[in-house]
């Protein structure tokens, strides 16, 4: 039975989530993948403020297909590990959740635990299915990056699994 979770994630909600839990996520999330991560970290290095305040927010590692006549095109997760080198600064700046697919580095896993955050995985390669869980989509930053821009998505009952919880328990530890 999936737990229904509403964003923004509260401290209490995050604490209640355990690695392996199946969840249905509803509320606002922001897409960001390789180039958006690189830019955000460069901005933080320069002491600039981010185009989207990340405190308390959830990032989705996704570069959606163009919408056409739909709300959004196919929009599954991309491989999270490529975002590892950029993730700790974002967690230090208040990011509370991430949605992607696959393993994280030990550095990121430690930072998730220290910052009381959570990492979810969702159905990779099921972008058509997941697009039906998105009820609105709006580009909010880095528009020049096209698919790699930051999009604000409102999702409803978006299926995911807790992969790393705030205690540091990790479904991928066996590898």
């Amino acid at each position: 039975m999936s737990k229904k979770i509403t964003m923004p994630l509260t401290e209490k909600t995050i604490e209640s989530l355990k690695a392996g839990d199946e969840v249905l996520l509803s509320g606002v999330i922001y897409t960001a993948r390789d180039q958006a991560h690189k830019r955000m970290c460069e901005m933080l290095d320069k002491g600039e403020s981010l185009p989207v305040p990340l405190a308390g927010e959830v990032l989705y590692y996704c570069g959606p297909a163009p919408r056409g006549k739909r709300i959004i095109g196919s929009c599954g997760p991309t491989t999270s590990g490529r975002m590892d080198p950029f993730t700790e600064p974002l967690l230090e700046n208040g990011l509370k959740g991430m949605i992607g697919k696959g393993r994280r580095s030990s550095g990121v896993a430690g930072s998730i635990r220290r910052n009381k955050a959570v990492y979810f995985v969702t159905a990779g390669g099921a972008g058509a299915y997941l697009s039906a869980k998105v009820v609105s989509c709006e580009c909010v930053a880095f528009e020049d990056l096209a698919a790699e821009a930051i999009y604000k998505l409102k999702i409803e009952e978006f299926p995911a699994i807790v992969a790393i919880d705030s205690k540091g328990d990790n479904i991928y530890d066996k590898y």
């Binding site: 959606p64 297909a65 196919s74 972008g127 058509a128 299915y129 697009s131």
Partner: peptide, 20 residues
């Protein structure tokens, strides 16, 4: 979900995966 995804993509003529 993967089997359902394939059905939806074929029916609605959208990409099976966003990484085309």
């Amino acid at each position: 979900v993967l089997v359902e995804n394939a059905g939806m993509a074929g029916k609605e003529k959208i990409a099976i995966c966003q990484d085309t």
